[in-house]
Design a protein around this nucleic acid. Sequence first.
DNA 1: CATGAATGAGGGTTCATTCAT
DNA 2: AATGAATGAACCCTCATTCAT
Lengths: 202, 202, 202, 202
Amino acid sequence: MIYRRFSEKEEAVFEGIMELLRNGNNPYKITVSEIAKSANIGKGTVYDYFSSKEEAISMALIYNIQKDIATVKNLVIRENTFRDKYFKIISLLQENIENKYSTLSLATNYKELDEIFNHDLDTKRDPGFFITELESIFSIIIDKGIEEKIIYDNETKYYQISAVRSSISGYLGYISHRECFPNIDEEYAKDVSYKQLIKMLK
Amino acid sequence: MIYRRFSEKEEAVFEGIMELLRNGNNPYKITVSEIAKSANIGKGTVYDYFSSKEEAISMALIYNIQKDIATVKNLVIRENTFRDKYFKIISLLQENIENKYSTLSLATNYKELDEIFNHDLDTKRDPGFFITELESIFSIIIDKGIEEKIIYDNETKYYQISAVRSSISGYLGYISHRECFPNIDEEYAKDVSYKQLIKMLK
Amino acid sequence: MIYRRFSEKEEAVFEGIMELLRNGNNPYKITVSEIAKSANIGKGTVYDYFSSKEEAISMALIYNIQKDIATVKNLVIRENTFRDKYFKIISLLQENIENKYSTLSLATNYKELDEIFNHDLDTKRDPGFFITELESIFSIIIDKGIEEKIIYDNETKYYQISAVRSSISGYLGYISHRECFPNIDEEYAKDVSYKQLIKMLK
Amino acid sequence: MIYRRFSEKEEAVFEGIMELLRNGNNPYKITVSEIAKSANIGKGTVYDYFSSKEEAISMALIYNIQKDIATVKNLVIRENTFRDKYFKIISLLQENIENKYSTLSLATNYKELDEIFNHDLDTKRDPGFFITELESIFSIIIDKGIEEKIIYDNETKYYQISAVRSSISGYLGYISHRECFPNIDEEYAKDVSYKQLIKMLK
DNA sequence: CATGAATGAGGGTTCATTCAT
DNA sequence: AATGAATGAACCCTCATTCAT
């Protein structure tokens, strides 16, 4: 999606913005002054590298979504079994969500980036980039499951991917509203999610 | 959550705000002038009924989420079979999402209401209200499925609810990113979602 | 200055305004809502009797200055000796000043009424009304002093009046900035003022 | 009271505000737009140097009171005789008062600065600063009078200072309401004031 | 008469953006 | 290249005034 390398200043701006978001700042309310201070550069410098505040924030988010997806992919690949891979991905997504500002929940709602920030980026050219990336990770997991014969390969690709998406969403729904499930602990919720995934794919 | 009745002007403001959102306005960028114009009242009048812009928008959203959930519930109850109820709910949620500004996706991310609008509402007192409401609808569907013996009752309540949430999320994921699935039509996606639900609960 | 009688509502407004001022409200910041509430009448009613907020406040002030001057005059006349009359007037002015909102200091700065409230009143017609009134009280005091032979009658009228004005101002200066004179008590300051008056008129 | 130096822009704001006041603008009604225009700077720039309109106005007034008192002091010191010093101070005060917006009458009513502008300044820390400054000038005059043996040194310091304050107030009362004294010319009023001063201190 | 709901002009303040240094 | 002082458009909100009831 964004292929070129970024200059030191650009990355400083990205990191400054993410720092602000991680500290609980509302992305629609952060100011250029705050960004500049957080990035340890002058306010005018932001405009030497970005043509508007919206662009800077949009690019910072996309940059981080990409980075986070890449990280998730690497760590999932590194796990050996189907079960470990699945538990890894839901743990990573959970971490991301709990990190106050979830780049990855933005990834699934990336339309917001365009609509809310009113800044076009390249989503027009490659609108499903993030989804595609995520689904490639899902594929890796499914392939492992088939290899391990834990799940069958008797459904369409769409069905399989959708099943992973569904079971993950189920777990993330629990995480996002844990207070609604006082009797359910994390372990159990993970097990339920895994069980549902297998049932769907058997 | 909000139990009292609203005055004519309050509802005009709510409707004005929803109209703006439906027309694609960014909720973080709409101005009091726009709200007043859209509601056909004077700017000052907004402040006779709400103490701030944030309050007006927050309340408009909550009001509409409640209304939309109630509508969904009524329409789902009205359907006769397990299958019809399930297809009804995913169709209604789809409609809501496609309406440009989805109150119900806000319902599942209602924390935003607090955090982004910085306005407390009553979510503090009853934070899981919307989720609880939605899950009561899921329960109705599950009960029907059990009654029809299409699904079994051999899993925990949490498992059952979570299964509905998962399979719905799966379908909504398709809807939200249809452009990523050029070969999949709506009918098929619905069928997949339904099949996954049944598999999880068998 | 204002000769006609005032209706019940008009006096309610006057009293409402004075109440607000006595409670420390800034006269340039009180609102019509506050005035109406303080006067226990509807906001619209204020405009049935006054053509603007400025007029209401101006008239309230003038009304009260007149009332206060009349009170001072009566109480000064009632005192029997030169000394008692002088001590009476400075005590009354002191009370007025210490009452948070001094109508009488406004009287000597009545230009403010016009300039600050931008409302013409009748000061154009009778600009020195208050001053003249106050000086008639000073005259009464002087006459008594001459009668008692405590002071002589060998200076011009202007000189005599000016002497009273000066010695009173001297005392009020002390009252207004008592914190600057930690070692001077009220009694002593009054005695000094009286002594200065006599010296000027001997 | 305010010891630090002011930047060019700060002084521009001060001068802009004073210009507005000298032109008869009500200090409670001047707007930030007017201030900015009068100071030849942008509206936003005011807020780079002052945190609110009230602060800007309060500081402008205090700054000018200080400057004016310092000027008065210098010019009074420069005069050689008791009589010249006294005539100098009343002339300077007269000028100040006639300048439409009298900083020095504010000095004697400096509580207004706090109360009316609702802005704290340092008056809390040093409430009598202006009064003390003025009285130090009065002292200079008195000392000269004693040196010249025109007045005696047989009264308390408070009495002496109070006498100067009184006689000055007497003259300023004439100036402020000249229309009430159609037969009295300025020269005569000054002579009366001077005579009263001497009588009080003999 | 009396009211207070409704209005919208106008105010203080913020902040994205520019540009001289 | 980097800065931050300066700007002014645009926002939220207040409140004097009106007018239908």
